[in-house]
Amino acid sequence: MLLQPLWTVLLGHAPLLHSLLFPTLFSLSVYLSFCLPFLLLDALAPRWALVRRYKLQPQSSVSWASVRSCLALTVYNHLVFIFPLTVLHWYLRPVHLPPEAPPLPRLLAQVFACLLLFDFQSFIWHLLHHRVTWLYRTFHKVHHTFTSTSALTAEYSGVWETLSLGLFAGSAPLLLGLHPLTELVFFLVNIWLSVEDHCGYNLPWATHRLMPLGLYGGARHHDLHHLTSKCNYAPYFTHWDRLAGTLRTGD
């Protein structure tokens, strides 16, 4: 039980985990924490060629006006829309904290399964919102305000998109019956991958470099989507775009 010491520590904070505020605070604080390193790179890029060489669109720069705009919309969506829904979820499905942690192999396998399920759901949703003009103009166009991605643009979206993708992320653990620790790890990984997808940098340690055979797209994959809006609809993996003929690698 390699994860038991970690789970025991978390159980020591059970009142926080049971709190109706926890899901929203967790989501917002983790998201902003993951964005911070990339915001630092954005600040250094105009002055430091070593950083700028890794930018996917080196001619672009991130303005502080856009940072403020992204932050304002993110906080607004969390407070006005996500928080009431998490309260409803908290009321309908009270948090259950079992005394034992899940086995590590099971946790890793289930997190990967959740990512695959979320990737499929998001691919279908995303493709429809680009193929149906009304859906794009009414809902998805907000997210494409920025053709050059940066970390904070990951959650720059309207309420329909925010709630839809939140529903996909929340339904995957529910469908698979995950242990609360596995669910937390999935949310952490999912938020990180979303931020990394939008970071605007092709860094040497990026996730897509760790996956063989081009199975994972990463920031370069998603930046091409924002640049052209005609390819790479899956958020993470490349197999659905490959099957649909919408994959573009930029090589």
Rank of each mutant, 00 (worst) to 15 (best):
L167S: 13
P105F: 11
L117F: 07
N77W: 01
I191F: 03
I191E: 10
H225G: 04
V159E: 07
Q110I: 01
T147R: 06
L28H: 04
D241W: 06
W48V: 14
S194P: 00
H225M: 05
G200C: 09
A169F: 06
T147P: 01
L213M: 04
S33M: 12
S229G: 01
L128C: 14
Y201L: 01
L71T: 08
L107Y: 06
A151S: 15
P235N: 03
T24L: 09
N77C: 06
C199N: 14
L17F: 12
Y236W: 09
F123S: 07
H89E: 14
V132D: 03
T138W: 10
P105V: 10
A14W: 03
S61K: 13
T74Q: 08
W240Q: 14
G170K: 11
L92I: 11
L167W: 07
E196W: 02
G170T: 08
G250E: 07
A169M: 13
I82H: 12
L215F: 12
F118T: 03
S69T: 03
E183L: 06
I124L: 15
T86C: 10
W192E: 03
S19W: 08
L117E: 05
R68C: 12
L127Y: 13
A14H: 03
H143Q: 02
T228N: 08
L108Q: 05
P98L: 12
R53V: 12
S60H: 15
S66F: 01
A14E: 15
F112E: 04
V62N: 06
S27W: 10
L203W: 07
L25S: 08
H140D: 01
H96I: 10
N202A: 15
I124D: 00
F168G: 03
T147A: 05
W90M: 02
L40S: 05
R248E: 07
Q121R: 07
L88M: 11
L44G: 03
H222C: 05
P235G: 06
G218P: 09
F38V: 04
Y31D: 08
M1T: 08
T74P: 00
D223I: 10
H226T: 04
G214P: 05
A72H: 06
P180G: 10
T249A: 11
F186V: 13
D197F: 01
R131H: 13
W64A: 12
P235K: 11
N77D: 07
F237T: 08
E161S: 00
H226M: 08
H225A: 05
P103N: 09
V195P: 04
A109W: 14
E155W: 00
H13W: 14
L17V: 05
L127M: 05
Y54H: 15
A65F: 09
V9E: 04
Q121C: 15
W125A: 12
Q110N: 04
S33A: 15
T147Y: 00
S150R: 15
T74E: 04
T24K: 11
L104H: 09
F83S: 08
A109F: 10
E100W: 02
F112I: 11
D241N: 04
G12M: 09
V159I: 14
D42H: 13
S69I: 00
G166W: 02
H225D: 02
H18A: 12
